[in-house]
Computed example of a mutant assay.
Amino acid sequence: MASAAAPYPEGAPCWADVALGDPAAGKRFYGELLGWTFGQPAESYGGYTEAYLDGAKVAALAAKPDGRMPTAWNIYFATPDLGAAAQRVTAAGGQLIAGPARVGGLGRALTAADPGGSVFGVRQPGGSDADAGFERTGEPGSYCWVENHTREPRAVDAFYEAVFGYAPSESPQAPGHRLLSPRGSEPGAHTAVAGREVLGGLFPAEMPPHYLLYFRVFDADETAAVARRLGGRVQLEPREGPYGRWAILTDNQGARFAVLSHPRGVN
């Protein structure tokens, strides 16, 4: 699975943040679980706090302005023109939830829902590569992958093809799992920046459509044990998959995410 370098091509995941009721508790959880340190909260933006791994930006924690908002991880896809992307979202049958709006020195962003109901963000960087988003991906303690879990695969596939020009392909290791590559690239696992999965099987019938973010870790089993100790939960016990050993966890406030380590015996 490819990780894009900044500046990111259109449609590539470029940033992630988590909306929490208690960001201080979130710092304690993710600081120990993933080895993150944290910058100073941006008080003018509700205490938005960037997370770092060895000095490189890897994510952010946001305070929920309204307790009714979901406690959840959010993924943002890159675009060079947020206004044009917003028009494509609505024209293709999506819904704008918030924005487009400027977000401090981080550029402009919007939040939207696709026709299947999965919520995602789109982000146009600020004036320098330093504003483009992730400064490290694919390494232990950082973002490595994202999947859209949906019950409307045909409508969702058509939507993202219209919005981002994704070139789809089927995963040779996971039948039924679709890989999405940026516009103009050769479809396949070596260029894929996201995946699309049909909800079912391992997931309960009442689970809503969503994006599931993965963070790379050294050892999925050990990380799951640490999450439990820190007050989180293990939603899906560690198991072997086509790309390594993985598990689905929730943090100590209920935000859901996955962790992925290399297959056992592979460094």
Rank of each mutant, 00 (worst) to 15 (best):
N148W: 05
W15D: 00
G141L: 08
A72M: 10
A258V: 11
A72N: 06
P7S: 07
G31F: 07
G188Y: 07
F164W: 10
G26H: 12
R216I: 02
Y8G: 03
R183M: 09
E222M: 10
V226Y: 01
R239H: 14
G254Q: 00
G254N: 01
P209E: 15
C144E: 08
A63E: 13
N267M: 09
W145A: 09
F120G: 10
A255I: 11
T49D: 11
S185I: 00
P9H: 05
R233H: 13
G231R: 12
Y214W: 14
R88F: 06
A92V: 09
H177M: 12
L61M: 02
G99L: 01
L213R: 05
Q87V: 01
A12L: 02
A78H: 03
E222Q: 15
G21L: 09
R154E: 15
S118A: 15
D54Y: 13
A255P: 09
F164Y: 14
G39M: 07
A24H: 13
G127Y: 02
A92T: 06
G11K: 06
E43V: 11
D251E: 08
D17C: 07
P187S: 10
A224P: 03
D221K: 14
P9Q: 05
S44P: 00
Q124N: 07
G21V: 02
G165I: 05
F134I: 04
E240M: 11
